[in-house]
Design a protein around this nucleic acid. Structure first.
Lengths: 166, 166
DNA sequence: CCAAACTATTTTAGGGTTGAAAGATCGGCC
DNA sequence: GGCCGATCTTTCAACCCTAAAATAGTTTGG
């Protein structure tokens, strides 16, 4: 770009410089920043107002969608965390009486875990507040942003999953 | 809102049902999923190919942008993690010879930390691979997605920051 | 000058998280 | 029946992370 006259248009495509992916990198960093900010907000408020940690809330959110409970392995996969992590989380939540472990009806290796009535009640309360916090955090989006982000992120999710499964 | 005939257009705005913010919630969950997937990919590859953890890579990335080094406090703010966290990360990276701590020239409370030549060299290697991984993960985006996501996330970042600073 | 307020860092206690290895069970196949 | 590979869970060591308290140094207003 020094030897010949540089093109003056503000073309942002990187196709001309193979191996340059600064734009993708910038997008990734921005994605990371947004997630960290929202996550920090939610983590702080969950602790201050409900005395609960974000991972425990996340686990309860999964169980809330499965009234009959689910196995530890299923929890692990849906939360995208390791098996051992789930073991510990369930243990601590069980001590607090928020969840209970039951022997799996047919598979003696597995255990199903589900919310206790108390767990269901307290999750409902937290979930309502959580939804309001997210709405508050997202209130500054432009009108078309929500569907646009949904679409772009759907394609990103798809794209990343193709890489991971190789 | 319920008493008169409902509008039949597929308006997705939630303004009609006050208190309903399911769409924002869905967007947040999708954002979280995308971030977790990419982060997992990067974490795994950094470990497998370079034997380094993601937090250490992140810290080195910050230092790489500051040739003269920066204070622990500045690192903590830019990485959006706690002070104590940075103390430990720097300690471990220093043991490996990737970073070095120097007394701050004017403020005896503070310490500046910077990459060693070895740290700079190994970061450069990792950063090149990292950029390629991100490009690979983002390759399935549609043509207009990149700028659209950049814009939407910029507004989201702005929006969240207004909430947090209250 | 100096005390109070503030800033930079470390320490501590309590979780959260991973990857790998080990134990237990299941299921199919011979 | 009995073996073998796959699956479910736990355990373990090492690391990451936070919030809060403690330590040390700086700044500011009187």
């Amino acid at each position: 770009m020094d030897t010949h006259a540089p093109t003056l248009d503000a073309e942002t495509k990187a196709a001309e410089r193979p191996g340059d992916h600064k734009e993708e990198l910038r997008l990734w960093l921005r994605l990371l920043t947004c997630t960290a900010m929202v996550e920090g907000l939610v983590r702080t408020r969950l602790r201050e107002r409900f005395g609960v940690t974000l991972p425990r809330f996340d686990l309860m959110a999964q169980l809330d969608k499965a009234p009959d409970g689910m196995t530890l392995g299923a929890l692990s996969r849906r939360m995208m965390v390791s098996n051992g992590n789930v073991t510990g989380l369930v243990e601590r939540l069980a001590v607090q009486g928020q969840v209970e472990r039951l022997p799996h009806p047919t598979d003696r290796r597995a255990a199903t875990v589900r919310l206790t009535p108390e767990g269901r009640r307290s999750f409902a309360e937290m979930a309502a507040a959580h939804e309001a916090w997210i709405a508050e955090a997202f209130v500054g989006l432009a009108p078309g942003d929500l569907p646009a982000l949904m679409g772009g992120l759907a394609r990103l999710k798809q794209s990343v999953s193709h890489v991971r499964e190789r």
